[in-house]
Write a protein that binds this DNA or RNA. Structure first.
Lengths: 206, 206
DNA sequence: ATACACTTCAAACGGTTGTTTGAAACGGAA
DNA sequence: TTCCGTTTCAAACAACCGTTTGAAGTGTAT
């Protein structure tokens, strides 16, 4: 689908790279494998992106720009409604990722790419993510602080750190639980999100 | 330290490989980098381990054999004591990993290697881990089931899955929280373990 | 001293990596 | 048609990969 001729060379490369990065990692997925999957010439990567490192960053940018926008949009909605709860806050954080992972055009594999970025100790990549998207976490942290005034700053950050870990790990489908054969991908993911919110809210409140 | 002459070639390779796998990943860490760090000849890896894949498995085996043994030992102690709680059960699971991560000889980097194994989609590696160490999780799951009889099997497995994710992520030090400058590594890790148990117990009970 | 198993070594193997090059193909404007 | 910027292409580059080889070194037992 993503390598079909109706997509531009640029988009075909991004789609194939995303899939191969998720499956094999950034180092192990070679540009020859990427360009073969995208059905474009090898030199097209360096022509359109300059280097492999730039391609990696662009794979993140393409998804994270919209994901961050949607998360902050929902955060603003929840804050404005006046009925902010831990659950609604977690929902604002998780639902955009859930929607992305249900996107037809390979959104689900991106969550695995994102989780790989945490496993990679690559400081360039971490700096890129922190510089460009760190403000999203900051805004959510402030909202959590408002809802959990009994926790001091240190205690709160510990819990948010653990919560983000649980969310990252689960949304990347790293766990043992496999989707049941009779169950659609959508239902599976929605159940996971529901369990995640329930579990994490309790942990934050504890 | 681990590359000092008092350690055997075999152990020096294992130590250097562990450190480089944690830092760069299994694919990106080359045998030439490993043998240079270990100060041994390149061919020593294939002489002592046969192949890079075997070396990777051996890096896991060296730590996981004892880690699994200690976890099951503590699980048995807790079960025997008659006063099993969620907290004591989580403590039995976490404390051996905590002790390992405080080990002088590079135990802390191994937790990062272990977390990488989850991020890797490598089916050979996952099968190796599941075949050789899956029984540990099985035994703990049975103990959790006993403590949470109100949860049906599916609900329980979801929560254990999420809990394992939080533990894996946190013990690998993937989070944003950095050790404070005036604080020892030991104190930092012990605080993390304490927060982890508190958070996870609440999530499981929720 | 001789023999033998174990270990280390430098060198080379074929294959793959990211990147560069210069020519060919393309497509709209003049 | 001619022109020109944009994009694609096959081919080559040096560098690095995991693995193999056969010789050199090592220490122990005979």
């Amino acid at each position: 689908m993503r390598d079909s001729p109706q997509f531009s060379t640029r988009q075909r490369i991004l789609g194939a790279a995303e899939a191969l990065f998720a499956e094999r990692g950034f180092a192990a997925a070679s540009l020859r494998q990427v360009t073969a999957a995208a059905k474009v010439n090898l030199a097209a990567v360096n022509y359109h992106f300059g280097s492999k490192d730039n391609l990696i960053e662009e794979v993140f940018r393409r998804r994270l720009d919209e994901l961050s926008r949607r998360r902050l949009e929902r955060l603003a909605d929840v804050a404005k409604s006046g009925s902010m709860t831990l659950e609604s806050l977690l929902d604002a954080f998780i639902t955009p990722a859930l929607e992305l992972s249900l996107d037809r055009e390979g959104g689900s594999v991106f969550m695995r790419v994102l989780a790989r970025a945490f496993a990679e100790h690559n400081s360039n990549l971490r700096k890129f993510l922190s510089d460009n998207y760190g403000y999203v976490l900051k805004d959510f942290a402030a909202a959590f602080a408002q809802l959990l005034p009994q926790l001091d700053k240190e205690e709160l950050y510990w819990r948010i750190d653990i919560a983000v870990g649980a969310l990252t790990y689960a949304m990347a489908d790293f766990g043992m639980i496999q989707r049941r054969s009779g169950e659609s991908e959508r239902v599976h993911r929605e159940q996971m999100a529901r369990h995640l919110i329930h579990f994490t809210a309790a942990g934050l409140r504890a």
